[in-house]
Simulated assay, not measured.
Amino acid sequence: MLSELNFTSTMLNFTTPVPGGGQGGGCPPVGIQLEGLILPPILASDVILGLLGNVVALWIFCFKLKTWNPNNLFLFNLVIADFMVLVSLPLRIDALIRGHWVFGDGMCRINLFLMFSNRSASIALMTVVAIYRYFKVVHPHHRFNRMTKRQAAFVSAFVWLLVISPRVPMLASNHIKGSGDHTQCFFFTSYNETSRTLIVLVDIHRILTVLEFIIPMAMLLFCSIRISSSLSGRQMGNPDKVRKAMRVCVVIVTVFMVCFLPTTVTTIGVWVIRTYRPRDCDSFYTFTQLNIASLGLNFLNSALDPIVYMFSSSMFRKALCSSLPRALRCRKDNGENEASSSGTQLTNQEILKSMNTE
């Protein structure tokens, strides 16, 4: 989505205003590139917070977890997705501060590819975590709950293939615009792009930006509602386990809405105005500025994902708490783990009974 902003900036600063020109050509330049003022501090904060949280998470996954389950494997892949964008954002911050891109065509392609792929991978993997929790709570006897680590690895590989495949063509195109001190790394260039290949890539990107939010959001809401109704309708069950299951869904949906909804809405707004109201410059400027502000939230998910790990995995939470100094350790960790353990044993016994009956 950062490239969507760069597209806007390019159009506003490098196209010649033509009164009555089609596709927004009649709008005069903004005059100030707001992204150079707003985004560097926001993106720098995202990088610092994201690295702190994800380095700790990676350390726990690699050195502190004694056993793995499918849920932890999905969360580990989410850590990898976060690192993809965290290593690419510093280059974008440097370009915003300098006012031009100095890292060459190859790094430009990789930079854009990593940023686009991160958003798709984060959304897909959070959705998988929510679906896994849904089956655990709503359908405890389903064979999906007996997924092995090998099968979870295949699911993770399929998710990566699904989200990366549409982005691979970006690596085959040159996205460097301008020359000298005006060189920029943009995915979008102008309203009237002459390259048919780039037109197709832009259309694919716009469609994916909308679909990869709407479809997972619908699935997340469905899982949350079904988990809530299922737990509310049961007369039995550990209250702590019920609350933890609901917290997982609430945290994932909240992170999802905060990080990805503003960017999706503003992208749709810019797209609609360019297409159907090309001379409405005030609306175009408004949505452009909102899109700029939303970009910081778009990459904030990398800093907030460690919170998802805490709520989604009792094993991760236990490993983290046991690694803290004694004065900072979670006081309720033992009680919660005992309750979670007893609830897990009960679920396993129910599954075994069901298998024997079958």
Rank of each mutant, 00 (worst) to 15 (best):
I131M: 07
I131G: 00
I131D: 01
Y132K: 10
R133P: 00
R133W: 07
Y134N: 02
F135D: 03
K136T: 15
K136A: 13
K136E: 14
V137P: 02
V137E: 01
V137D: 03
V137R: 01
V138W: 10
V138G: 07
V138R: 09
H139N: 09
H139G: 01
H139T: 00
H139L: 10
P140A: 04
P140N: 02
P140G: 05
P140V: 02
H141E: 15
H141K: 14
H141S: 13
H142M: 06
H142I: 08
H142L: 08
H142F: 07
R143A: 13
R143S: 15
R143W: 10
F144E: 03
F144G: 02
F144D: 01
N145C: 14
N145K: 11
N145W: 11
R146N: 13
R146K: 12
M147Q: 12
M147I: 14
M147C: 11
T148I: 11
T148S: 15
K149D: 10
K149Q: 10
R150W: 13
R150H: 10
R150I: 13
Q151A: 15
Q151C: 13
Q151E: 15
A152Q: 05
A152P: 01
A153H: 05
A153G: 11
A153C: 07
F154N: 03
V155A: 05
V155T: 09
V155L: 14
V155P: 00
V155M: 08
V155W: 10
S156N: 08
A157L: 15
A157M: 12
A157D: 08
A157S: 12
A157P: 02
F158C: 07
F158D: 03
V159L: 05
V159W: 06
V159M: 09
V159G: 05
W160M: 07
W160N: 04
W160S: 01
L161V: 11
L161G: 14
L161A: 15
L162Q: 08
L162M: 12
L162E: 07
V163L: 03
V163Y: 08
V163D: 04
I164D: 09
I164T: 14
I164N: 11
S165G: 06
S165A: 14
S165C: 11
S165N: 08
P166Y: 09
P166E: 09
P166K: 08
P166D: 04
R167N: 11
R167S: 06
V168W: 08
V168C: 07
V168I: 15
V168A: 08
V168E: 07
P169V: 04
M170P: 00
M170T: 08
L171F: 06
L171S: 03
L171Q: 04
A172E: 00
A172T: 02
S173I: 06
S173Y: 01
S173F: 01
S173E: 07
